[in-house]
Structures are given as structure tokens and as C-alpha cells.
Amino acid sequence: MGIEKGTPVLVAAVDNDRMALLALKGILPQLLPSAQWLWGVGNADEAVAKALNPETRPRLLLVDMSLDEATGVSVCRKIRMRTDRVMLLGITAFSVDTYAERLAAAGAQGIVSKADIPQLAKALRTVAAGGTFVPNSVASVTFRTAADAHRLLLDNGTTASIGNGTANAGAEDAGHRAAKLGAKESETLHLLSRGLTYDQIAAQWGVAASTVRTHAHRAVDKLGAHSLAHAIALWLSR
């Protein structure tokens, strides 16, 4: 699905850092001259709703990997399960290696570092044109086109449904609970369930709060949870 000449590329973004959204909006015309900024939000659910609404649907959605109560991976999966009309490009301030494999499985068309402006420009042009972008550091990861990714996710969902029948919902929750978490991921959910904040956990461990947030987001993805609260609930029910 290419871009007709002269047609503006509608671009939107979800990032819980308001300054990052403003920076993206400001630099976008230089990176992708054909782009037209559509909207920028900091909330995962709002981004999914806007992306699926034909009146607010962008051609290309930039998805930050580290959101507050959800992950960029889950945002991409929710959108791709419903449509192939939105191109999805993951963006991150951390290493792309951390998210690339899970993001590809969630139906995105690529991932790029926010700090690498030349690569960001290349990724925007490539994905907006209907292609896929794979950073050199994750060359072994296969990103698929929106149409192929959408079809694959639907096929996997249908296969799982047929195989499990009416017991599918219960089996799904059991699978979530049985998902293997790393020690730090489990400990993060344990401490969050006791009411500690990212900053408090970071102080205990002597690390940055962003490190704790990454552990939490990995746990959310591994458990197949819809949000951090859902992940904690699944972990507590194990």
C-alpha cells in the first residue's frame, strides 16, 4: 500500500513524555517533508482508540516503547489485530535490541532509536511508504508489512480459538499465569503490588527508575497483560 504522489502522510504519535511529542512534531517536516502531523497523545488507550477510528486514523503511528501503564508492544498488538491500515513504527530512548523481537511479533513495521536522527528519517520514509525498517543491530529480526502482520496475527488467533474451543478463555489466563518471568521482573511486580513506586524500587536497588520500568513492561508483555495493573493481578493469582 504505497503513497499517492502529492498525498500528505498523516502521522501521529503516542509518548508519555510531552516534550518528546513536541520535539517529534517540530522536527517531523524535516524528516518527512510529505508528513502532516495529526495528533500526539500520552495515553495508550487513547492512542489505540484514535488509531482505530476512521476519522482520526493516521497513516503512520509512532509508538514509544515505554509508556506509564502499558507498553508500546501491547499498543501495536491491539491495533494490528484490528487493522492493517495503520503503519506502526516503534521509537525508543533505550536500546532497540530490548524491544525489537517482541515488537515484530506484535505487528509493527520497525523500530528506531529516538536519538539517531538520520535513522529516524530513513525509518519514517520507509515505513510510511509501506515497507519495513530493521536496524543493523537487530538484523536477524523479521518485521513484516502491515498486511502480512495483520493476517498472521488473525491466523494465530483463529488457530488458538479452534484448538481450545470454549475453554479458550480459561486456558488463556492459565497460560498467562504460567508465563516464565525473570527474577527482576517477578520482584518488580511483587514490590509494585505492595504499593512501592518505580522511584522507591530504584532507590532500593541502586538503579535508575527507567530500569525498573523496563522490568515492569517486560513482565506485562510476557504475561500478555493489557496493563500494569492487569499484570500484577495475573502475577498475584499464580
Rank of each mutant, 00 (worst) to 15 (best):
M1I: 08
G2W: 03
G6P: 07
G6C: 08
A12I: 01
A12F: 03
A12M: 04
V14P: 01
D15K: 06
M19C: 12
A20P: 02
A23R: 14
K25P: 02
L28H: 08
P33S: 10
A35N: 09
G40M: 10
D45V: 12
D45Q: 14
E46S: 10
K50A: 10
N53T: 03
E55Q: 11
E55A: 14
R59K: 06
L61P: 02
L62I: 07
D64E: 10
D68W: 09
D68R: 14
E69K: 12
T71K: 08
G72V: 05
G72W: 08
S74H: 12
S74Y: 06
C76H: 06
R77Q: 15
K78M: 12
R82S: 15
R82Y: 04
D84R: 09
V86H: 09
L89N: 06
G90S: 07
G90E: 07
I91K: 03
T92E: 06
A93Q: 11
A93P: 02
S95C: 03
R102G: 00
A105G: 02
A108T: 01
G110M: 00
I111S: 00
I117Q: 00
L120C: 01
T126K: 06
G131I: 09
F133C: 05
V134L: 07
P135N: 11
V138D: 07
S140C: 08
T145F: 11
T145I: 11
A146I: 12
A149F: 12
H150E: 13
H150M: 15
R151S: 15
L153G: 10
L154H: 13
D155W: 12
I162D: 06
G163W: 08
A167E: 15
A167V: 12
N168S: 13
A174P: 01
A174L: 14
G175F: 08
A178T: 07
A179Q: 04
G182M: 05
A183Q: 01
S186T: 00
T188Q: 04
H190M: 11
L192M: 08
S193R: 04
S193N: 03
Y198W: 10
Q200R: 09
A203T: 02
W205S: 05
G206D: 03
V207D: 08
A208H: 13
R213S: 13
H217C: 10
R218I: 06
A219D: 06
V220F: 09
K222W: 05
L223G: 05
G224F: 02
A225T: 03
I232P: 02
A233W: 02
L234N: 04
S237L: 05
